[in-house]
Design a binder for these strands. Structure first.
Length: 310
RNA sequence: GCCGCGGUAGCUCAGUCGGUAGAGCGCGGGACUGAAAAUCCCGGCGUCGGCGGUUCGAUUCCGCCCUGCGGCA
């Protein structure tokens, strides 16, 4: 029996993934699984450019609006949810269409993540405490002793990853570099097609700037005000683009114009980082998008490729 | 027309008591496996407005010219 099919549409922010995905989904009886760390939050709609009910064309969307803004989210939760959704969609005869811009999320779905090493309560704080008043590279040296390969692959200043690697080591009794070898992802289990939307950089930046202006028109500021009124935003949620900059404005750190400027800039930088991730992924088949090209046209192009590869 | 202050990296500017220059912002590249829309690393030769003069040597001093801003007529 041949492998079941999964399709990905990836691309930087503001590349038009969501709309293209809906059109494609209609043609191939797909259900969309959002591959996005922020659209999971209820109430964060404008800032995350979440698809609206009347734009879904009746296509089922998963992993949108699944948690409250005071809850945390991470790749492991994401991966578990996606795996069970894929099974369910396949059982019902549909095609899972994964749509999103997070390189790490894509990578982990494709190649897997190791189990049994979540965040240990209090560990990070404790080890930060231990490193206080010690040399700058104290934790790095510590990691070097227990897990040289990981230490070599990290920059000594990359504190966050150093601490995480130590956390895994003390929790699993195994270096993270070793744990990583025991992963399995979707790639070997299914027939996977990955399409990436490719824009000229300047054209993409223009789209980003325009979209941020559009968000302000739609009431981004009120959305954020509302969120901070109602919730103590979680560590992950409050880092959303648009959210953190407007919180800065609301706390009087800078003007509203400055907040708008920062959102545009940070979104551009984000897009650049996303592209760094996609560029090195050889399994992506790139779809070149020219300025002004319609989503219908792009979707039709992808559809043709999908049909020819089945 | 006269007086004053400017013309240095894409932008805003610093600086060189004469030995061809540096910050911020913007931008580019990279990393990445339980915070990822996060986090971390790397990247600045640019006719120092133009032409002459002085000097071993000028972006730095002098002269003229072009040009922006302000003031006086």
């Amino acid at each position: 029996m041949s492998k079941k099919q999964i399709i990905f549409i990836v691309g930087p922010t503001a590349s038009g993934k969501s709309e293209v995905a809906v059109i494609l989904a209609k043609k191939i009886n797909a259900e969309i699984i959002s591959c996005d760390s922020m659209q999971v939050y209820r109430g964060m709609d404008i800032g995350t450019s979440k698809i609206k009910k009347n734009e879904t064309r009746g296509i089922t969307h998963h992993l949108i609006d699944v948690i409250e803004p005071n809850e945390e989210f991470n790749v492991a939760i994401f991966r578990d949810k996606v795996n069970s959704l894929i099974d369910k969609i396949h059982r019902e005869g549909g095609v899972p269409l994964l749509v999103g811009g997070s390189g790490l999320y894509m990578k982990i779905l494709l190649d897997g993540i190791f189990d049994g090493a979540g965040e240990i309560k209090g560990f990070r704080k404790k080890i930060e405490e231990e490193a206080r008043n010690k040399p700058d590279d104290y934790l790095y040296q510590k990691l070097k002793e227990v897990d040289p390969p990981t230490a070599d692959s990290l920059h000594p200043k990359d504190r966050r990853r150093i601490i995480r690697a130590l956390e895994v080591y003390y929790h699993m009794g195994m270096p993270i570099s070793e744990a990583k070898e025991k992963r399995k992802g979707l790639w070997e289990k299914y027939s996977v097609l990955i399409f990436g939307l490719a824009y000229d950089r300047q054209a993409l930046y223009k789209r980003i700037n325009k979209r941020v202006d559009f968000m302000f028109e739609k009431g981004l500021l009120d959305e954020v005000k509302n969120l901070v009124d109602k919730f103590k935003l979680s560590r992950t949620a409050k880092n959303a683009l648009g959210c953190k900059e407007l919180i800065g404005f609301l706390e009087g750190e800078y003007s509203l114009d400055e907040a708008r400027r920062l959102i545009k800039r940070n979104t551009r930088r984000y897009a650049k980082r996303q592209l760094t991730w996609f560029k090195k992924e050889p399994r992506i088949e790139w779809i070149t998008v020219n300025e002004g090209e319609s989503c219908e046209g792009i979707a039709a192009g992808i559809y043709a490729k999908v049909k020819s590869e089945i």
